[in-house]
């Protein structure tokens, strides 16, 4: 294995594992589902006391999720010296 492919592989792996992308993806998926619920399902205003809670929560989650992904993409983690950190 050459060092270069190793580095490239590790970088992809790291971006996949980057906690910011994981958080962003989960929140964005939740945001989309709630947004759709807000648009198409019964808003159940008798429970919420007026506002379409799903819609608002969906929009906010989507924005936060997108912000996390943007952060992860714009400022990727740079691994230093792969292999120097092996266990056992």
């Amino acid at each position: 294995m050459s060092t270069d492919t190793n580095k490239g592989f590790l970088a992809t792996l790291l971006s996949l594992f980057d906690i910011r992308n994981v958080i962003g993806a989960l929140l964005a998926v939740y945001g989309i589902i709630l947004l759709l619920m807000g648009l198409f399902a019964d808003p159940e205003v008798e429970k919420t006391g007026g506002p379409n809670a799903n819609l608002w929560a969906g929009i906010i989650l989507l924005v936060i999720g997108a912000a996390f992904i943007a952060w992860g993409v714009l400022r990727p983690v740079v691994p230093d010296a792969p292999g120097s950190h092996e266990e056992e």
Partner: peptide, 10 residues
């Protein structure tokens, strides 16, 4: 009492 389905699941 207060959460509509959707937010309830969350």
């Amino acid at each position: 009492e207060v959460l509509p389905n959707g937010l309830l699941g969350l």
